Amino acid sequence: MYEKPKILICGDKAVTVEFGDELSEECNKRVIIKLYRMFKLKKIEGIISMIPTYRSLLIKYDPFKITYYELIKLVELYNNNDTEKEEVKAKVYEIPVVYGGEFGLDLDFVARYNNLTVEEVISIHTKPLYRIFMIGFTMGFAYLGGMSEKIATPRLEKPRTEVKAGSVGIAGNQTGIYPISSPGGWRIIGRTPIKIYNPTAENPILLETGNFIKFVRITEDEYRKIEKEVQLNRYHVKIYDYNDYKS
């Protein structure tokens, strides 16, 4: 039996289900596995949309198709189900990244700040599987968990007015990818040629909450080649089953 989540009423057509106060992998798993994926799998009539965060799930619903009380009963039911094995259904996106040079303006600083070599920073950054805790800030921006404290680095004192789309950065103990060109204060260590956000695609946002990212180092020549394939809509991001990838 799991702890009962807190239900917050958001107007007459939405509720927020809170699973805790801490930012932890365990809390996020309950958000994604217990509710978000289960509601998607069951295709509950009346559920209009859902927005998962680090520790909560906002559910927008049609009260003419499902009542508040019916919705809460489903929340309690799925919360108490033993669905931990759902983790094996998660996906791993391989994200190719060229590090340093014009693509990673702050890589040298990150290395110096942490008393590491550039090669050590790259090795540490490409080692983990990063869990996608939530999507937000800008279209497709993934908040990732799992970066090593060994390469944690403070943000820029003065943010840049433009960070190019695909830039991979570090801010504190977090790492992430800029899906569009925008202002930003993260320390940029590399760039991926793939489009994290593509408004013309069938699914505009590539990444999905609850899945994982694996950064894979590529050369500048490989970057240019993939970039051209992306422009011609010929490049397909490598996506693996989480369980197969781990094994």
Rank of each mutant, 00 (worst) to 15 (best):
K4I: 14
C10E: 15
D12Q: 13
T16C: 14
F19R: 11
E22T: 15
E25Q: 12
V31C: 05
I32D: 01
F39Q: 07
G46D: 03
I48F: 08
P52L: 06
Y54N: 03
S56V: 06
K65I: 01
I66C: 05
T67A: 00
Y69D: 15
E70D: 14
L71W: 00
K73P: 00
K73S: 12
K73C: 04
N80C: 10
N80A: 09
N81S: 12
D82M: 03
E84Y: 13
E86F: 12
E86G: 15
V88P: 00
K89R: 12
K91Q: 09
Y93V: 00
F103I: 01
G104E: 01
D108Y: 06
V110W: 09
R112A: 14
N115P: 06
V118W: 07
V118F: 06
I122P: 03
P128E: 05
P128G: 02
R131W: 10
I132A: 07
F133G: 02
G136K: 06
F137V: 01
G140P: 10
F141D: 07
A142S: 15
Y143T: 00
Y143G: 03
S148G: 08
P154L: 06
L156G: 07
T161N: 13
T161P: 06
V163L: 05
S167T: 04
G169S: 08
G169P: 04
Y178D: 00
I180T: 13
S182N: 08
S182R: 02
S182G: 02
W186P: 05
I188Q: 04
R191N: 10
T200G: 09
A201D: 15
A201V: 06
E202S: 15
I205F: 04
F212A: 02
I213D: 09
R217G: 08
Y223T: 08
R224I: 12
K228N: 13
E229W: 09
V230E: 08
N233R: 15
V237K: 07
V237A: 07
D241I: 00
Y242L: 11
N243Q: 10
